[in-house]
């Protein structure tokens, strides 16, 4: 897991309080959005649990003793959801999936890989895609399975792939 390079805002205490002024707030949220995506990209994580955010150094800067309140985290997540970079996993919006590429982008990246490596017309397991030796150089190596399934569904909608799921077998066939 690579170390993230924190932006200057991260050690700026007001960054951890949602700003009342509209313009400032918009800038603040935009900065948070890119920071969240960057953090999740580098740590290769996908799930945000709003109840547990303060175990995470992203929303809890111990060096300046500041935490981002969960309401603010929700606001940021909602904003990420609008740009297609996040979606709630449950109805209470406590658990969220964060994708630093949108699902369509992920779909394209995976499909391009399949095309370049001659996997069109063959079956791949999810494990093979995210953990296999063939993909260790790929950006989607280690991708969260839920994100993988969702991005494959965008490919399915475009008739470029089909998800196979029976018994406890799960895989995908590229076309």
């Amino acid at each position: 897991m690579a170390e993230i390079e924190w932006p200057w805002q991260y050690s700026f205490p007001p960054f951890f309080t949602l700003q009342p002024h509209a313009d400032t707030r918009a800038k603040q949220i935009a900065a948070w959005k890119s920071l969240v995506l960057e953090y999740y990209r580098i740590t290769k994580q996908a799930v945000v649990d709003v109840r547990e955010i303060h175990t995470n150094s992203l929303f809890n800067n111990t060096s300046i003793n500041r935490k981002l309140p969960s309401e603010a985290v929700l606001v940021i997540l909602e904003e990420l959801g609008k740009s297609g970079n996040a979606s709630p996993l449950d109805k209470t919006k406590q658990r969220w999936l964060v994708y630093w590429h949108t699902l369509e982008e992920w779909g394209d990246i995976i499909y391009n890989w399949a095309q370049e490596n001659g996997f069109i017309g063959s079956v791949c397991t999810f494990f093979e895609l995210t953990q296999g030796e063939d993909t260790s150089e790929q950006e989607f190596h280690g991708l969260d399975t839920e994100v993988l399934i969702r991005s494959l569904k965008t490919l399915e909608a475009a008739k470029k792939a089909e998800i196979i799921s029976f018994d406890d077998n799960q895989g995908v066939k590229f076309f």
């Binding site: 063959s122 397991t125 093979e128 296999g132 077998n169 895989g171 066939k173």
Partner: peptide, 13 residues
């Protein structure tokens, strides 16, 4: 056949 391949691959995994 695809399903069979998938099953075999899954076992391999």
């Amino acid at each position: 056949q695809d399903k069979a391949i998938l099953q075999v691959k899954q076992t391999r995994d």
